[in-house]
Design a protein around this nucleic acid. Structure first.
Length: 470
RNA sequence: GCCCCCAUCGUCUAGUGGCCUAGGACGCCGCCCUUUCAAGGCGGUAACGCCGGUUCGAAUCCGGUUGGGGGUACCA
């Protein structure tokens, strides 16, 4: 599963990488265990990135990398820091530290700092944070952020079993890969001075940091996998277009500074500047994403639209019998649906009546359209009218016909069409009716009108039976 | 608790001392169009958290305050 927050970071990185001929987008999977144990997990990220247009085939793309690729170097670096005196072994347990400090929330107290402990069982390696003075982080989004060393505890860089911690592994990887610009979530900001200290201890020039403000939910909390809908895959599945997703994500915390917000990647990418990114957190507004997606869908040309709908019409997903699908009918109706759907998945309920053996009646729609009197009158009258062999079976003529049927009942077309629509499609809302009738053909339309009429009469009979006898 | 970050319409943002009686986009609300629903057109609603400074002048600079958020592991 790929997180929308990760997707935004990736896009920002990607835009920057593409702005320079030599630019690289390095994808590093920072979760060592997951990367090692769940290859499908990283494959998911790769395919989600490819969906967004960040392809492994592109020369700007590098990765994925796993920390395990540099595992030996992690260990060597830890040893080097120890022998250089920049790190020391510590035998304290968490409980011991908490007891000494009287508060479990207070950090490490430096108990073993000058004990000169040798490596040994139960001894973790801690980084010796320099005395006094601040570490200044140059942050491309906020400017300078200062951290007093007094507030940074001597943090552990290697566990008692010798395995490196994230901070160390991360820095070693960055050094190895020549990373000079780090764009990632703001949750890492307080980790950054530690990393910078490590870079300096290793005699390296630290990279430029760009901790992106987090993406939040409606309650202004950082999006969480448990609580919020964050998986890019689920948006893809519902029928969001990657172009729309990219466009929307880029606008979260950044603005191209022009009046238009809908802008293709090619146009947006050169405009992007990481230092223009906002420093405050942004709410992921699915409604706005939907609106963007609708616009992108409408901008598709007819054939492209049909092809993009294809996955939702496939036998494994569509609710109708596969053999009922009629390519010609779908192509005829697709343009009518195109302006009516905001995500591709919605194509199905719009066209299902064409391919289902019988329409699926929406209960609310039925009750609304089949009001006493109007429903039955309209159904039987139009059944008769459509049975007239002289009736031309073409949208315009059908419209005229139904108008006349309605008039005879004293109904305007708006009211008159409702029972017919529900009888034929199952719902009160949907594609333009007369085009639908034309495509369905006289026989199927008449059969459905008849079936609805039967159902309606059965309803009424039941109601009468249920009514208390006078 | 401690450290750090943030603060303009409901939301995403424009805005870097006068062009701001604060602009755009999404949403929302009207009206028009209309066979339903959309789409489209037109119009509307709505914000500089608060208090002090600095300045001829502050959404923009400074201080404080309040409110949000993140971090604080031998997690990543």
């Amino acid at each position: 599963m790929f997180h929308v927050g990760g997707a935004r970071s990736a896009l920002f990185n990607w835009a920057l990488a593409q702005q320079q001929p030599e630019g690289r987008f390095v994808l590093r999977i920072e979760d060592t265990d997951a990367a090692r144990n769940k290859p499908e997990w990283t494959e998911g990220i790769i395919s989600a990135l490819a969906w967004l247009g960040i392809s492994e085939a592109d020369p700007h793309f590098e990765g994925p990398y796993f920390q395990s690729a540099y595992a030996d170097e992690h260990i060597r670096t830890a040893e080097r820091l120890y022998s250089g005196g920049q790190a020391y072994y510590c035998a304290c347990t968490r409980d011991q530290v908490a007891e000494r400090r009287g508060n479990p929330h207070l950090g490490y107290d430096g108990f073993c700092r000058d004990r000169g402990l040798e490596p040994g069982p139960g001894r973790a390696l801690r980084f010796r944070v320099p005395d006094g003075g601040p570490t200044v982080v140059e942050d491309r989004i906020r400017g300078r952020v200062e951290f007093e060393h007094d507030n940074i505890e001597d943090f552990v860089i290697a566990r008692a079993d010798g395995s490196p911690l994230f901070v160390l592994a991360n820095v070693v990887d960055d050094v190895e890969m020549g990373v000079n610009e780090v764009i990632r979530g703001e949750e890492h900001l307080s980790n950054t001075p530690k990393q910078q200290l490590l870079w300096e201890a290793l005699g390296q020039t630290p990279p430029v940091w760009a901790p992106l403000p987090v993406i939040v939910n409606e309650k202004r909390q950082k999006l969480s996998k448990r609580r919020d809908k964050v998986a890019l895959e689920s948006y893809q599945d519902e029928g969001y277009l990657p172009e729309a997703m990219v466009n929307y994500l880029m606008l979260l915390g950044w603005s191209p500074g022009e009046d238009r917000e809908i802008m293709p990647w090619e146009q947006m990418q050169p405009l992007f500047d990481i230092s223009d990114v906002n420093s405050s957190s942004a709410f992921f507004d699915e409604k706005k994403l939907r609106a963007f997606n609708g616009e992108y869908i409408r901008a598709l040309d007819a054939d492209d639209f049909v092809e993009r709908c294809r996955p939702y019409l496939a036998p494994d997903r569509a609710p109708w019998p596969a053999s009922n699908f009629d390519e010609k009918a779908f192509r005829a109706v697709a343009p009518l649906a195109q302006s009516r759907i905001a995500v591709l998945g919605e194509i199905v309920p719009n066209v299902d009546f064409l391919f289902l053996d019988e329409p699926v009646f929406d209960e609310k729609s039925w009750n609304k359209a089949m009001k006493p009197g109007v429903g039955e009158e309209m159904l039987s009258a139009s059944l008769e009218r459509f049975g007239d062999p002289g009736q031309v079976w073409e949208a315009e003529a059908l419209k005229t016909a139904l108008e006349e049927v309605g008039q005879a009942q004293g109904l305007k077309l708006g009211k008159a069409q409702a029972p017919v629509r529900v009888a034929v499609t199952g719902r009160t809302v949907g594609l333009p009716l007369f085009e639908s009738l034309e495509l369905l053909g006289r026989d199927r339309v008449r059969a459905r009108l008849e079936a609805a009429l039967e159902r309606l009469r059965a309803d009424q009979a039941r109601e009468q039976a249920d009514a208390p006898a006078e």
